[in-house]
Design a binder for these strands. Structure first.
Length: 608
RNA sequence: GGGGACGUGGUGUAGCCUGGUUUAACACAUCGGCCUGUCAAGUCGAAGAUCGCGAGUUCGAAUCUCGUCGUCCCCGCCA
C-alpha cells in the first residue's frame, strides 16, 4: 500500500453531467459492490453522497483488483466521468446520470464486516448504533443531520456577527448555584474538598458581560444539567445564548425573529413570515391547555362551566362549587376509530395529569349518545352543543376538576388527537411567542414561591412594595401562580419550547428582594449570589436576553423525534455512552489526588 | 422516585398469549460458485443463535413466575 498522498479532486456526491469528460481522483468508502462477473459496479461514498464506479474487464489487472473490494474498504480511484449508457441512468441518485470509468484503484485501507449495514433501509437498534456511533454517522440520515446542524450553526453565527454581537466564551468550570436544576460537579484538586460545577447555562456570566459593557453578546454554547433524560433532553446540550443591554422585550423579540428567519433562509433555504404571533400565558393555557401549544391545528378547549351553572349532575356541580371548571374538546366522529371501548380507554391519556375521568357525548344526527346524557337536562345538552358549535357526527370530551388539572389534561388530549386524527400539516413551520408569564409559582411541598423562569427575571412591577404581599405568603394561595407577572417570553416552534428569555433585574435592591421572597437565606444569598449582587452595585445597565435550544431546533427541522439523532455523540437515557463506556470508574490514584476519601478507601479494599 | 414497552445467529424481526411435531423460522449481511449494465442487483450453495443474565415452577421452559442488568417511551424532575 502506498503512503497516504491522496490528491482528491471531487467529492463523490457532487458529480453530474457537467463533469462529463473530466479526469477525476476520488477517495471514499466502498458502499456496495455489484459484481456481474464481466463488469463490476462499485458505489463509492463520501460525506457528500454516492457515485457509481465501473470496472470493465478489458483492463484485466484493475478488474481483478476490483473483484477483491468489500464493503467499507477505503479506496482512491482515478477515472473519467462518463455519461451513463442510455437507459441505465439512476434517477434515484443525484449523480445518477454519470459514472466513473476507473483507470486506477488504490486500496487505502480494508475493513472488517461491519456490525450493521450502512444503509438507509436497515433499521438498527439504538444501543448498537451508539456503541458504533462512528459507523452510525456514516448512514445518510445521520450524516445529513450533522451537516445540516453545522450549516444552521454557521448561519446563526454569521447573522449575529453581522448584527454586531460579540461571541464571548464563558467558563465551564464554574460555581454551583442552588435553585434550578442539579449541577454536574467537578472536584478541585488544588483546593481539596471544594467543587466546580458545570454550567446549567451561562446565565450569570452573560449578565456580568452586560455589566462589563459588551452590550450585545452571543455564544453557541454547551450547557449541562444532571437531570433525568428524555427524547428531547440530554445531560449536555447546546443553546444559542444571547444577551443585550438597553433593550425592551420588543427589541429582543424582533432580534430573535430576524435571527430565526435568517437561520432558516441561509441554513435551510426556507422563507418564513415575521413577526410571529404572540399570545399570553393565560391564553395559551385556557385555549390550548399548554404553555407551548402546537398551533399547526385548531381544536381549542372550550369552557362550558357557564352552561352548567345550575346543573343537577353532581360531578359537574361539585366541581363548580369547588372553584373548578368543566372544559372540553370537540372532534369529528369516526365510528370505526372510536368504539365505545376506545372512548372509555381515552381516560388513560388524561389520567397522568390527575383527571379522575373523561366524560364524552356523542352528537348524532338525531340526538345525543352518552353515558352521562341522562344526568343532563335537554337545555344543558343543547347548550353544550352550541358552545362547541358541534354539528352532527362529532364527539365532545370533558374534564371537570380544578384548573390545574383540567387544562393540562385537555392539552395532552388535544395533542393526542392532533396526532391520532392527522390534524397536523407537517409542512407548516409554526412559530409564536408566549408572553406575560406569572413571575412565580407556588411550591406546595416547600410552602414557598419559586421562580417560573429564574430568579434574575425582572418582575412587571412599578414599585418594590408590590412584592410585599407575596413575600409574606405562607399558606397555599388560591392560584398556584403569582398575580405579579414577569417580563419573560418563550418562543414556541411546532408545539415545542424552542427557547425562552426575559428582561433581567439590574438593580441590587430588587434582586435582593426577589431572593428574600424566594426564601433564600441571607447567608445563602451572600455565599451563592454575592458576586452578582455586588456587580449590580457598579453601574449594571438594563439588560435582557434569550436562549434557544439548538439541538431541539435542528431535530424539529429535520423531522427527528429525538435530539440524539442530531448530536454526533449523545448519551443513553441513563446518561451512558456505550461507545466509550462513560461514565466509568477511575484509578485510586486519581481519587486520592482529589481527596475523595471514602471511594478511595473503598477501591483500595477492592484491589486488595 | 414512579408507570409502561422491549431484549431470540453479525443486524432486524417471527415464534412466547395457549410450555412438548421446531432439528428455534424469515429477511438482510457474511463466505464460496455462476453471471457484461446493475444500482436495496440476480442466481445456486454454505456457515452462523444453549433465545440478556440468575433463580424458581414443571417430567419438560425461548415460551409461565420472580429477581437482576440493559435499551427505549412517559410522569415527577428539567430556575
Amino acid at each position: 500500500m502506498k503512503e497516504f498522498q491522496v490528491k482528491r479532486t471531487h467529492y463523490c456526491g457532487v458529480l453530474n453531467s457537467k463533469n462529463i469528460g473530466q479526469k477525476v481522483v476520488m477517495a471514499g468508502w466502498v458502499h456496495s459492490r455489484r459484481d456481474h462477473g464481466g463488469v463490476v459496479f462499485v458505489d463509492l461514498r463520501d460525506r457528500e453522497g454516492l457515485v457509481q464506479i465501473v470496472f470493465k474487464p478489458e483492463f484485466a489487472e484493475l478488474f481483478a483488483q476490483a473483484e477483491k473490494l468489500h464493503s467499507e474498504y477505503v479506496v482512491e480511484i482515478t477515472g473519467t466521468v462518463q455519461k451513463r449508457p442510455s437507459g441505465t441512468e439512476n434517477p434515484k441518485l443525484p449523480t445518477g446520470e454519470v459514472e466513473i470509468e476507473a483507470q486506477t484503484l488504490e486500496i487505502l485501507n480494508t475493513s472488517e464486516t461491519l456490525p450493521f449495514e450502512i444503509s438507509e433501509f436497515s433499521n438498527v437498534g439504538e444501543e448498537m448504533r451508539l456503541k458504533y456511533r462512528y459507523l452510525d454517522l456514516r448512514r445518510p440520515q445521520l450524516r445529513e443531520n450533522i451537516i445540516f446542524r453545522t450549516k444552521l450553526a454557521q448561519a446563526a453565527r454569521k447573522h449575529l456577527s453581522t448584527e454586531g454581537f460579540l461571541e464571548v466564551e464563558t467558563p465551564f468550570l464554574t460555581k454551583s448555584t442552588p435553585e434550578g436544576s442539579r449541577d454536574f460537579l467537578v472536584p478541585s484538586r488544588l483546593t481539596p474538598g471544594t467543587f466546580y460545577a458545570l454550567p446549567q447555562s451561562p446565565q450569570l456570566f452573560k449578565q456580568l458581560l452586560m455589566v462589563s459593557g459588551f452590550d450585545k453578546y452571543f455564544q453557541i454554547v454547551r450547557c449541562f444539567r444532571d437531570e433525568d433524560l428524555r427524547a428531547d433532553r440530554q445531560p449536555e446540550f447546546t443553546q444559542i445564548d444571547i444577551e443585550m443591554s438597553f433593550v425592551e422585550i420588543d427589541d429582543i423579540i424582533a432580534m430573535t425573529e430576524k435571527l430565526i428567519s435568517g437561520m432558516l433562509k441561509d441554513g435551510a433555504g426556507l422563507d418564513i413570515k415575521t413577526p410571529f404571533p404572540r399570545m399570553s400565558y393565560e391564553e395559551a393555557i385556557t385555549r390550548y391547555g399548554s404553555d407551548k401549544p402546537d398551533l399547526r391545528f385548531g381544536l381549542e378547549i372550550v369552557n362550558i362551566s357557564p352552561v352548567l351553572e345550575n346543573t343537577k349532575f353532581k360531578v359537574f356541580a361539585d366541581t363548580l362549587a369547588n372553584k373548578g371548571v368543566v372544559c372540553g374538546l370537540c372532534i369529528k366522529d369516526d365510528r370505526e376509530k372510536f368504539s365505545r371501548q376506545k372512548l372509555e380507554s381515552l381516560k388513560e391519556v388524561v389520567a397522568p395529569f390527575g383527571a379522575k375521568g373523561l366524560a364524552w357525548i356523542r352528537v348524532t344526527p338525531t340526538g345525543f349518545d352518552s353515558p352521562i346524557a341522562k344526568f343532563l337536562s335537554p337545555e344543558e345538552l343543547n347548550g353544550i352543543k352550541e358552545k362547541f358549535n358541534a354539528g352532527p357526527d362529532t364527539i365532545i370530551f370533558f374534564v371537570a376538576d380544578k384548573k390545574k388539572v383540567v387544562y393540562p389534561s385537555l392539552g395532552c388530549l388535544r395533542n393526542y388527537f392532533g396526532k391520532e386524527l392527522n390534524l397536523i400539516d407537517k409542512k407548516i413551520l409554526s412559530f409564536h411567542w408566549v408572553v406575560d408569564f406569572p413571575l412565580l409559582e407556588w411550591a406546595d411541598e416547600e410552602k414557598r414561591w419559586v421562580s417560573m423562569h429564574h430568579p434574575f427575571t425582572r418582575p412587571a412591577i412599578k414599585d418594590l412594595s408590590e412584592l410585599d404581599a407575596l413575600a409574606s405568603q405562607s399558606t397555599t394561595p388560591d392560584s398556584h401562580t403569582s398575580p405579579v407577572m414577569a417580563h419573560a417570553y418563550d418562543i414556541i416552534f411546532n408545539g415545542s419550547e424552542l427557547g425562552g428569555g426575559s428582561l433581567r433585574i439590574h438593580k441590587k435592591d430588587l434582586q435582593e428582594k426577589i431572593f428574600q421572597l424566594l426564601k433564600i437565606s441571607d447567608q445563602e444569598i451572600t455565599d451563592r449570589f454575592g458576586f452578582l449582587i455586588e456587580a449590580l452595585k457598579f453601574g449594571a445597565p438594563p439588560h435582557g436576553g434569550i436562549a434557544l435550544g439548538f439541538d431541539r431546533f435542528v431535530a424539529l427541522l429535520q423531522g427527528e423525534d429525538s435530539i440524539r439523532d442530531v448530536i454526533a455523540f449523545p448519551k443513553t437515557q441513563k446518561g451512558n455512552c456505550p461507545l466509550t463506556n462513560a461514565p466509568d470508574t477511575v484509578l485510586p490514584k486519581q481519587l486520592k489526588e482529589l481527596y475523595i476519601k471514602s471511594l478511595y478507601a473503598e477501591k483500595e479494599n477492592i484491589s486488595k
